[in-house]
Design a protein around this nucleic acid. Structure first.
Ligand code: FES
Ligand code: FES
Lengths: 149, 149
DNA sequence: TTAAATAGGACTAGAATGGTCCTCAATCGA
DNA sequence: TCGATTGAGGACCATTCTAGTCCTATTTAA
């Protein structure tokens, strides 16, 4: 199904909410209340996003989380890799080791291309694009390198 | 990691092999021998591909599998959906039901856009492209906004 | 008829995922 | 200072998904 994990989905919801007023610190509990996602889960996701340097956290009373960058500078690709690790469709496009199939298979190079293409697509969409409701005014260009036949 | 399943990976390997001489029937055992994938697994995959109308099978002695279409007409997207079901990154972009998050979430529309983009990318790569050893032709630009309709 | 093939499932072991919970550390404010 | 608040960092479990095997029935060529 080529799906991303539920946690990643949640992450985008959370980040979208935070992007609405980016200058304000939000506590995990507040976010849980607003989004309807269970607190422990929210907490887990927020921690991951902090580790990915995507959020900045403040401990203690009145603490919370705030976006580390502006919404325009946070790509969907970054969110995905924060939650799920590097974006790689196939095994052998991530490990540069020798592949088991290597002998009977010449497709590795082209898989890399597909990977790159999808990565580009995801890189070109930012949090700002996600929150902007139904109109994306600017033209975002996605280079579909080499894939035209 | 946004990965596709191992079976899908195998499927591309198998199909790539079959595309080399498309006019010939290949038995499951032969394919297993050539690709190094275990026979039962190969068999399972081939059955799935038949169900997806991607291969045509012949039973009985001297039977086997053959591509149902030309390699140029088999897209990677089709292979993926054959093995993993419809390509949809998020839950709510596949079920058009009301989403749990629906109240606090305006991003559905834009996820659909991302989905569409990735789908287009995968649709534009064919089996023929996969077997063609890694040439990098021209860059084709696709404006994201053109996907709004 | 017999051997060679696929069709269609059932089935299992193992891994990954989603989700919860607990303890520790930091910060604020009374 | 002390207590309340909030995040950090893991451990942990239940459930689902995946990969892989295997069995039986059906079809076809020789
Ligand atoms: S499957 Fe790894 S190189 Fe082809
Ligand atoms: S998560 Fe389903 S509509 Fe936003």
């Amino acid at each position: 199904m080529l799906r991303l994990s539920k946690l990643t989905d949640y992450a985008t919801v959370i980040l979208s909410f935070m992007a609405k007023d980016e200058i304000q610190v939000h506590a995990a509990m507040e976010i849980a209340a607003v989004t309807g996602i269970a607190l422990p889960t929210v907490s887990k996701i927020l921690k991951m996003l902090v580790n990915a340097k995507m959020l900045i956290s403040t401990r203690g009373a009145k603490g919370g989380y705030i976006l580390a960058r502006m919404p325009e500078e946070i790509s969907v690709a970054a969110v995905i890799s924060a939650l799920e690790g590097p974006i790689a469709l196939t095994e052998c496009s991530i490990s540069h080791q020798s592949c088991e199939q290597a002998s009977g298979c010449d497709i590795r190079g082209n898989w890399g291309l597909i990977n790159q293409t999808i990565h580009n697509a995801l890189e070109s969409v930012t949090l700002a694009d996600l929150t902007r409701p139904a109109a994306v005014p600017e033209e975002v260009m996605i280079p579909l390198s080499s894939l035209y036949r």
